[in-house]
């Protein structure tokens, strides 16, 4: 069983929802990322999504665009990000790490080489935003053979027919993009999300995480009632931006923001168990 599946199994046994923070690797400085990852785990992260910066992040709003720019100014590459994961694994062998980004940096390294390196350093999953199942044949095979979960997106615009196809390709969990828009653009509508998750679960037994549009403890807790995982990105990255000139203080600041969400989710999880 993959580290991701194991993680969900344990959480589900305890009636808990996974909390997945997203941070862009190397933002605002490369040395911050590994301490930040540890701080996030301590604040209640169950899985870490590590963004691979790209020069042209077409699915991202301004907050994550700027994070990519800050990271790329430091010459962060897929290679150096794999090194960060390796360092993280020196002290943490239980928290799954998912790389999230765009196809081209993977394409530039070569899928085979990426698969081998990622497996060795302890990457657990990959989410390539601009690689739908239709284009992922060779990539998926290589990820499968190197025990790396391929995570795919489902969107509000995804038809039933496509959900079926995505469910066939997905491993680890399914990531539901809760709004039509780019990351950090708008607040989600909980009723719509609930209805869509019900539909997705008709096609898959994988856990379903929800991201894009979760801004605070309240929305995190609301989503936690219906999803298996809550993904928080732009809110944390905005906090990183605010601390870009004080990077020493940054891990603690971001962690405390995440801890608030963890707290809100746990309170609701508890309330629903006792109710």
């Amino acid at each position: 069983m993959s580290r991701i599946s194991e993680c969900f199994k344990n959480l589900q046994a305890d009636g808990q929802t996974a909390l997945i923070p997203y941070v862009t690797a190397g933002d605002p400085e490369p040395w911050v990322t590994v301490p930040l990852m540890h701080a996030l785990v301590e604040a209640g992260a169950d899985i870490i999504e590590l963004g691979v910066p790209f020069s042209d992040p077409m699915s991202d709003g301004p907050v994550i665009q700027k994070a990519c720019e800050r990271a790329l100014k430091n010459d962060v590459t897929l290679d150096s990000i794999l090194d960060m994961v390796k360092q993280f694994r020196e002290k943490n062998s239980h928290t799954p790490v998912v790389l999230m980004g765009y196809s081209n940096p993977l394409e530039a390294m070569g899928y085979q080489k990426f698969a081998e390196k990622a497996q060795v350093v302890g990457v657990d999953g990959v989410l390539t935003v601009d690689m739908p199942p239709e284009e992922s044949g060779e990539f998926k095979q290589l990820m499968d053979s190197h025990d790396i979960d391929t995570i795919f997106l489902v969107a509000p615009t995804t038809s039933a027919q496509r959900m079926k196809k995505i469910a066939e390709y997905a491993k680890g969990f399914i990531y539901y993009v809760s709004i039509k828009g780019v990351t950090g653009a708008a607040a989600l509508e909980i009723n719509e999300v609930t209805a869509k998750l019900e539909e997705i679960r008709r096609y898959t037994s994988l856990p379903v995480g929800v991201g894009f549009g979760i801004r605070d403890g309240r929305s995190a807790a609301a989503v936690a009632q219906v999803a298996d995982a809550v993904v928080v990105g732009s809110t944390l990255v905005r906090c990183i931006e605010e601390h870009a000139n004080r990077p020493q203080e940054l891990p603690a600041a971001v962690a405390s923001l995440l801890a608030e969400m963890r707290h809100a989710i746990n309170a609701r999880d508890l309330a629903s168990v006792s109710a």
Partner: peptide, 20 residues
């Protein structure tokens, strides 16, 4: 039929746009 010219072309977009 899926828009490839040899290895080139294709549909590399986010899921939200696939329907469109």
């Amino acid at each position: 039929e899926s828009g490839h010219f040899g290895p080139y072309g294709g549909r590399f977009v986010g899921e939200t746009l696939m329907g469109a």
